[in-house]
């Protein structure tokens, strides 16, 4: 019974993975492929947000770190002609490095201050990109970003190839998050959040652990940003605003920050809701934030564990009624 339960999420994951790999062969619909590509990027970002949240800090600057990766990779490719795959990783490192520097400054301060410092940081980056137009192209951004360089004769330019890169990135980020979740670091992270002082008295270097989580999250954000730049062939400061950072928070909270699956669930639901809504004739997308904000408030008010938390609660309630039926068996065990 116990063994079975532990296997189930992995099985589900495997099925989802296979479906994701097979999807382009099953459906050639480019609109859906692009939507899922965007979704994968959003999940990577939101998972990072959740990882930071695990250490008890809310980072509202994830979009900016995505931007750092996007600008870094784009500039290296377009100005210096470096190989895009190397730049892909450099983008991650650049974002992680920035996060490391910022983290050492800001993670020592209390939660609220940190959240606001990240807000300021997001704006700071946006303003730098807008103002330093000789390097970053100003408000107009950078256009004509090339597709990634071919590897072994395989060209990357089609919607399908971007789809696969995004899925690969999603898989590696998820694998990393799962590893962290099930390892000692994961334990340390959650102990930091639960008992800041207790963790400190156990000899955990709090700041370093928090910075580590922040850097890992931003590494993936940077890579996602580089991918995004290739995908759109165009980046501008408007792509990485504070509002985007808030959206990642929203996705994470709606999915549920307690579970490693929360970001995936939250992003999927919240990205497909507009896709569904747009099927309605005469639909005005201006009401989307109202719907999003409404869902966010309702979720926080009535199921703070998010959708995954709600699901888990339903399952455990179901199990309870089941176990009440077979009470004697369980009592014997």
């Amino acid at each position: 019974m116990l063994k079975n339960r532990r296997l189930t999420p992995n099985m589900v994951l495997l099925v989802i993975a296979i479906l994701l790999i097979l999807f382009p062969m099953l459906s050639g619909n480019k609109y859906y492929l692009r939507t899922i590509t965007t979704l994968a990027i959003a999940i990577v970002l939101t998972s990072g947000f959740r990882l930071i949240a695990l250490t008890g800090q809310l980072s509202i600057a994830q979009a900016a770190f995505m931007g750092v990766g996007a600008y870094c990779s784009t500039l290296l490719i377009m100005n210096l002609g470096w190989n895009s795959w190397i730049c892909f990783f450099l983008a991650g490192f650049a974002a992680a490095l920035t996060a490391g520097i910022v983290g050492f400054i800001t993670l020592r301060i209390k939660e609220i201050y940190f959240a606001i410092a990240t807000l300021a940081l997001n704006e700071l980056f946006r303003l730098i990109w807008v103002e330093w137009d000789t390097l970053f192209g100003g408000p107009a951004g950078i256009v004509n970003i090339p597709s990634p360089d071919p590897i072994l004769g395989i060209h990357f330019g089609s919607v399908v190839s971007f789809y696969y890169i995004a899925v690969l990135l999603l898989f590696s980020a998820t694998a990393m998050m799962l590893r962290i979740e099930r390892s000692r670091i994961g334990l340390i992270f959650s102990s930091i959040r639960e008992f800041d002082t207790l963790a400190a008295s156990l000899g955990v270097n709090l700041i370093w652990e928090k910075v580590k989580a922040f850097m890992i999250a931003c590494f993936f954000a940077g890579m996602a940003g580089a991918l995004y730049a290739h995908l759109q062939h165009f980046i501008s400061p408007v792509d990485f605003t504070l509002m985007d950072s808030v959206m990642f928070l929203l996705y994470g909270v709606i999915g549920g920050l307690e579970s490693v699956w929360g970001p995936a669930v939250g992003c999927t639901v919240m990205i497909f809701i507009p896709v569904g809504l747009r099927l309605i004739p005469n639909y005005n997308p201006v009401i989307e934030p109202i719907i999003f904000g409404g869902i966010l408030i309702l979720v926080m008010r009535f199921c703070p564990g998010g959708l995954v938390g709600l699901f888990q609660k339903l399952v455990s309630d179901l199990k309870k009624t089941e176990s009440q039926k077979g009470e004697q068996e369980h009592a014997a065990a």
């Binding site: 909270v253 109202i290 966010l296 408030i297």
Partner: peptide, 11 residues
């Protein structure tokens, strides 16, 4: 409350 306020802002 911070998260709820984000929702209010959007609305």
């Amino acid at each position: 409350s911070l998260i709820i306020s984000c929702g209010i802002l959007l609305v």
